[in-house]
Design a protein around this nucleic acid. Structure first.
Lengths: 229, 229
DNA sequence: CGGCTCTTTGAGAGTGCTCAATGTACGTGG
DNA sequence: CCACGTACATTGAGCACTCTCAAAGAGCCG
């Protein structure tokens, strides 16, 4: 658990193509990279807990990470799921340096860990980096609000249909009509604010709208019908 | 509607004590202020629509503003409610300069409107301002995620109890056990993701936990009982 | 006092959760 | 290579919750 790794060429490449870093000039990119260290974690490893002192934020290099909050009775609610190229935990820098949620590896992952103190210094000197980070924050904000609206406006089958259509866009650029779910169904259920059973039932309802599922493979024969759900 | 006003001393004072501006050095504060104009709007006036070109963001000087999204069938879901001293619409600057939600005055309001182009210029030159804006973004992000978790973890009476306890903190610093709701109950219902009827029922359930309501006045006789809900 | 809006109350239906049991996939070890 | 075990996924039944629709009540401003 939390095994330190040497940053290899591939890690570096992924980091540089991240929304956080892709726009930076080469010198600045190198400087930011120097405040990062790469490590691996196993499925279910806790990366940090709500309330803990935030000395780092993270970028996912491979695998998926789950952010969630706990109720007093111990029930969990997912707040977001982040995959390769995405940043998480950065908001704690501006919220009293305390994490406001829990983070857990949903599967074996490799992560880049950034040092908050060093990054904060960079921000005071390099507006270019601040702009990039604001972009990330704004994007996360947009996602979170979209989640709120989605939960409040749409039923389970509608949320699932939306998700499938979104995935269809992002994979194969629209020419293909099938793709692979990027992670476990139970994780997807959490991301959509559903119990696993509800996701399962939603999938079986969508069969009548031209969706077929085998394992993680999804095939969509009638995207129009999905949009009408 | 959208009546332009001259910025008076009081407006200036409120703006300067805002999270967005309170930390800035005087010269920078003046410069930021110069990119703003004050105006008033009536209840239900639309300030901007989802998808519209974002040339401004706003700070509330008085009254409350409602942010919401629309479903295809025309149902509305509130994403946030912002009051005096709070910023909204700033995220659009980083999302292709398109607003991603609708904004509407919930009552007569006065607002400061900031010019995005000028502010963007300031950001490239003044890291101090960027830091402040990142603080605002991070805070909004935190609120939005808290909303998601709240919706998914808590029932209507629990959400209302949470809200009342929060309000009790923020008003009177804890020595008083009563306060006034800052806006209409129907707006509060929307903010909490409830139909007005559900809010009403939640209030009447909370009567047995030492909450009494008359109009907008709330009295809490047993805060401990509320916490246990 | 009358008219309007906001709020409350009631009844009914839809939606998703919990719990429990069965099915299925995958990885391990015999 | 097959048998087994474990974790994941599906299915069913019952229940809790909140929405919708409809009507009655309260507050506010003219």
């Amino acid at each position: 658990m939390n095994k330190m790794l040497k940053m290899n060429h591939r890690d570096r490449e992924i980091l540089l193509s991240t929304p956080l870093m892709s726009g930076l000039n080469p010198a600045l990119g190198r400087r930011v990279m120097e405040s990062a260290a790469v490590f691996g974690a196993e499925a279910k490893d806790v990366l940090f807990r709500e309330g803990a002192e935030a000395e780092n934020f993270y970028v996912v290099l491979s695998g998926y990470v789950r952010l969630f909050r706990l109720s007093r009775e111990g029930r969990e609610a997912d707040i977001g799921v982040y995959g390769p190229g995405e940043t998480f935990g950065e908001c704690a820098m501006f919220l009293g340096c305390k994490y406001s949620f829990n983070a857990q590896a949903a599967e074996p992952v490799t992560l880049a860990r950034f040092d908050v103190a060093k990054i904060r210094q960079i921000m005071t000197e390099e507006p270019e980096f601040s702009m990039a980070l604001m972009g990330v924050l704004a994007h996360h904000l947009h996602d979170a609000r979209e989640n709120v609206a989605n939960d409040r406006l749409h039923t389970a089958p509608q949320r699932v249909a939306n998700y499938l259509l979104e995935m269809l866009q992002h994979s194969g650029a629209g020419n293909s009509n099938s793709f692979r779910l990027p992670f476990q169904k139970s994780l997807l259920a959490g991301k959509l604010g559903l119990a696993p059973e509800a996701l399962s039932r939603a999938f079986s309802m969508l069969k009548t709208s031209g969706v077929s599922i085998r394992g993680r493979m999804v095939q969509i024969t009638d995207a129009e019908a999905l949009r009408r759900i």
